[in-house]
Simulated scan of single mutants.
Amino acid sequence: MVQNFPVTRLRRLRATPAMRDLFQEQTLSVNDLIYPIFVEEDLDDFAPVESMPGIWRIPERKLDTAIKEIAAVGIKAIMTFGVSHHKDATGSDAMKRDGLTARMVKRAKDAAPDLVVMSDTCFCEYTSHGHCGVIVDGDVHNDHTIENLGIQAVIAAEAGADMIAPSSMMDGQVTAIRKALDGAGFVNTPIMSYSSKFASAYYGPFRAAAGCDLEGDRKAYQMNPMNVRESLRESDIDEAEGADVLMVKPAGPYLDVLIQIKQRSLLPLAAYQVSGEYAMIKFAAAAGAIDEERVMLESLGAIKRAGADLILTYFAMDVARRGL
């Protein structure tokens, strides 16, 4: 039987800083975070992303320096995104052993061998139309695309990628990538599937950062933001196909999805605090409307509290520099 006031006083456990720390239910540390980076070829110097204050496009030739700085502050994992100057209809550069995908993975691993390098496996940064695969009769062809995803995944694994992260939202992509990796001898390379990726309005700053000029939209393959059951089906299928980690993207607006996937799957669960989420906090703080550090930590704490084991966030360097 629950006792009420005055016998029960919940403030007893909040009375001092030490008491509050002792009874805190969730913790957030740099070990929970993955830092997404943008690597641009043929760039002379670091270029700021205007829509994402504090984020830079990293010149490929200076990636070694950036990676060593990232590792030095204690970040354990990065996700690599290429800004390609060699785009075509199929994103063929991402399937070449000397292409940007392979080069940036290898350079990152060489600079910091203990850093976990996750390779975003998709084609939107490498296609002239900005879509995530091969266009046939005006639509992204699912089966041609997953075949190419398998090729890209092997290219990244050969370059040293520790994890493959398919984000194109093609049916059967996990099966195709697992088959390709296993066939090439990479049976121990895990797959983090963007299993619940919504057709969100929060991606705008990312597209500017990645140089991704999109023709049309991705609603035919990314999910309707109003659909929860569909996201659960996507996650169930990706788990059955062999995904080692599931992901929800975006994070903050989809905490309900995070909670429900956590309740039904025993796989590790990641969430991507996307560019729009980051930008809103940065610009609101710059306007004096909020305390940036407190809101940053509260937003990340909410994602962790909802069930994420790992969080991809552009705040990773800020959190690491605060010694968390």
Rank of each mutant, 00 (worst) to 15 (best):
S275D: 03
N148S: 05
F23M: 03
A210K: 03
R107L: 14
S200G: 10
G99V: 00
Y254L: 00
S29C: 07
A302E: 02
H86R: 00
F5S: 07
L22S: 01
I151Q: 11
A72R: 14
L324A: 08
A180K: 01
T189H: 13
N227W: 12
P205H: 02
L258D: 11
I55V: 10
T27V: 12
I303Y: 07
A308V: 07
S128M: 00
R20V: 04
L232M: 12
V154C: 01
F23C: 05
R103Q: 13
L269Q: 10
D114N: 15
A320S: 13
L43Q: 04
L267G: 12
F206N: 00
C122N: 12
L255Q: 07
G204W: 07
D238R: 10
S119I: 00
A251S: 12
L63F: 11
D182G: 09
P53K: 11
R233D: 08
D114A: 14
A220W: 09
A308P: 03
S119Q: 00
A111S: 13
T121Q: 11
L300Y: 06
M79H: 05
S265G: 12
Q273R: 04
D45E: 15
D217W: 03
A240C: 09
R229Q: 02
Q26A: 13
F283R: 06
P59M: 14
Y254Q: 03
E158W: 11
A18E: 14
L267Y: 11
Q152S: 14
E60I: 10
A243S: 11
D45K: 10
V134Q: 02
R9M: 11
A161H: 00
N227Y: 11
K197T: 09
L10P: 05
P268M: 15
A108Y: 01
K262V: 10
R233I: 05
L10M: 09
G172L: 04
A47K: 15
L33R: 06
M226I: 09
Q260D: 10
A180L: 11
I155Y: 06
I34K: 05
G301E: 04
C124P: 04
S119L: 02
K96D: 09
M317Q: 01
R207F: 01
R264T: 07
T121E: 03
F46M: 15
V187C: 08
R178C: 10
F123S: 07
I191R: 06
P225T: 06
R11F: 14
M19H: 15
E215H: 11
T90L: 01
P6T: 06
R233E: 00
D217K: 07
I151P: 09
F186K: 13
A287M: 15
L312G: 11
T65C: 01
M223H: 01
D236A: 14
D45H: 06
G82W: 01
T121R: 01
M296L: 10
K262N: 01
I237Y: 02
V248N: 01
Q263A: 09
T27L: 14
K304M: 05
V295I: 15
S231E: 08
P225M: 12
L246I: 09
L312M: 15
R97N: 04
L232A: 04
